[in-house]
């Protein structure tokens, strides 16, 4: 891991932007830092030596072609898979995320592409899965139902008939809303969204994008994976581009346009972005 910076060089919650930033945002603090993260499955190198800073309170979009390693990277952050090598820093402190529970305990919530919902459970049961409220060692269904109703009302999720509906009976947009609401209700500091607008209609996409902005305005950091560059440029404060398992560029969204993003996604290089935003792996 020759490219891995020493921990002493890492941006912390009070330090300036990362070495690849080039934005001049001296006041930005970093919530999550990845240094030299690699993950291989046997002989297959899924991601290699990824260095990424996720800035606190901002929306970072992670973009890349199919197979670029985006989902592997977020599953590594989320504790689904342990990294083969590299370091993860949370607010400047090195952390070891071995299980999804470790990640959620830190305040990292992930909404997976397949939403990771249990179809045979209802909305309340899914919302509280793994964090059930209990009373005398028994599930406190009333408390959970009331809280779920309130949260969905706050989120203006008004299209579900009942919170006791099975998730299997929900539409794609409703399922997305439930998955995001579940991430929000756990007081997460970082919400990772994997393709949140895939397979959604126009109005549902707009709602999800609005939801992302709202999360950010409330101080919640968002890391969003998307194929849709329109969505990315609508909501992202920062952009990180992956190509063939490596992070080829990252920086403020204002430094990119659609053409440069496409060029980076397809080739891993672009002459249209400042050289300081390009990462040599």
């Amino acid at each position: 891991m020759s490219n891995t910076p020493e921990p002493s060089n890492l941006p912390t919650s009070t330090s300036g932007p990362s070495e690849h930033d080039g934005s001049g945002e001296g006041s930005a603090s970093v919530l999550l830092s990845l240094r030299g993260i690699s993950k291989n499955f046997g002989a297959v190198q899924a991601i290699q030596n990824v260095n990424l800073d996720v800035v606190d309170g901002q929306v970072t979009a992670l973009i890349g072609d199919n197979g670029a390693g985006k989902s592997v990277l977020i599953k590594t952050i989320s504790g689904i898979w342990a990294p083969s090598s590299g370091h993860i820093y949370w607010k400047g402190e090195e952390i070891h995320v071995h299980t999804p529970r470790n990640a959620t305990d830190l305040g990292i919530a992930t909404v997976y592409q397949d939403l990771a919902l249990c179809d045979n459970l209802d909305i309340v049961q899914n919302m509280y899965l793994g964090r059930e409220e209990t009373k005398f060692s028994m599930l406190d269904e009333i408390k959970m139902e009331l809280a779920t109703n309130q949260l969905l009302k706050d989120l203006s999720v008004s299209t579900v008939k009942s919170v006791r509906q099975l998730v299997a009976s929900l539409s794609g947009g409703q399922r997305q809303a439930i998955a995001v609401a579940r991430a929000v209700m756990r007081d997460s500091q970082l919400v990772i969204l994997d393709e949140p607008t895939a397979a959604l209609g126009v109005s549902q996409t707009a709602q999800v994008l609005q939801l992302i902005r709202t999360l950010s305005s409330r101080g919640i950091t968002v890391l969003v994976i998307s194929h849709n560059l329109n969505d990315v440029f609508t909501v992202a404060d920062r952009i990180a581009v992956m190509h063939l398992g490596t992070l080829c560029s990252s920086g403020p969204a204002s430094n990119y346009d659609t053409a440069s993003a496409v060029e980076l996604i397809t080739t891993g290089h672009s002459s249209r972005v400042p050289p300081s935003l390009l990462t040599s792996s």
Binding site: T99, P100, T104, T110, Y112, A116, L117, Q125, L129, G130
Partner: peptide, 20 residues
């Protein structure tokens, strides 16, 4: 909670693991 986890594992083992 044990029973709830039991149903969750049968419904979607990945989702169950993802929530810890």
């Amino acid at each position: 909670r044990f029973g709830r986890f039991t149903f969750a594992v049968g419904s979607n083992a990945f989702a169950a693991r993802a929530v810890g």
